[in-house]
């Protein structure tokens, strides 16, 4: 994938999407194959990408703001400085007023946004997002698509987005790779050329419907 691109991986459950992201995040060493980011291998070398796991994995003993700044702290940034950088972003992530809330006090959608903010604050050029909206209800999800696009358009980093939801992938991405069941191989690639910012009625668009049929066919095998 190129810089500033939003690319999705769609595939059936268990085809290895999460596994691939863990390899790219450098925390899982594959038995064979290569993985490069910016021309350098990332195998066994964590810390090069901003990885958001499938579960939100907020630390229950840290307040919203301290969860968001976790990465900066691990990179040696002073906590005060990391907070100063994070505070203006809280508004954009819909978390203003909740900086001192414990994760247990947040709704599923808010926890997900905290996890996304934590990932965005990592200051890496490549974001790896593993089904970030998988645990949300359909209505909250739709709202999150528009929101994520806005946030992403703001600083335009490369995103590799994993999902098993075809509409989600087509709504958000510049390009969609379709994976086969395990072991996952790319069986089709769809270029999604819709202009941004995209609107909610995109789903009814004839081109969108055609793409969805094509992806579903590739998935159905």
């Amino acid at each position: 994938m190129g810089p500033a691109e939003f690319v999705s991986l769609v595939g059936p459950s268990g085809c290895g999407k999460s596994t691939l992201l863990k390899v790219l995040a450098g925390v899982l060493v594959p038995t064979a194959g290569a993985a490069e980011v910016g021309g350098e291998t990332v195998i066994g070398r964590p810390g090069r990408t901003a990885y958001m796991p499938q579960k939100d994995l907020l630390l229950p003993w840290r307040r919203t703001l301290d969860n968001a700044t976790l990465g900066a702290e691990l990179h040696g940034t002073a906590p005060a400085e990391a907070r100063t950088r994070a505070v203006p972003l809280l508004e954009r992530f819909g978390l203003a007023g909740f900086e001192r809330a414990w994760p247990e006090e947040l709704s599923g959608g808010m926890r997900q946004r905290v996890a996304l903010l934590r990932t965005f604050l990592l200051d890496r050029q490549v974001l790896l997002l593993d089904e970030p909206f998988g645990a949300l209800d359909a209505i909250t999800r739709r709202r999150m698509y528009a929101w994520l696009e806005t946030v992403w358009l703001h600083d335009r980093r490369s995103v590799l987005f994993v999902t098993h939801d075809v509409e989600e992938a087509l709504t958000l991405s510049d390009r969609v790779h379709v994976l086969s069941p395990r072991p996952g191989r790319v069986v089709d690639t769809v270029e999604v050329g819709f202009p941004r910012p995209r609107t909610a009625d995109l789903i009814g668009d004839a081109a969108f419907v055609r793409m969805r049929r094509r992806v579903l066919a590739a998935l159905g095998g």
Binding site: K22, A25, G26, V27, L28, P46, G47, T49, Y51, P53, Q54, K55, L57, L59, L70, G71, E73, L74, H75, L122
Partner: peptide, 20 residues
């Protein structure tokens, strides 16, 4: 997965112990 998360952020073993 929590350990993998902080490792993906480049945490060393000592930091994994302290933060997680």
């Amino acid at each position: 997965d929590l350990v993998d998360l902080v490792r993906s952020m480049g945490a060393r073993p000592g930091q994994v112990l302290r933060t997680v």
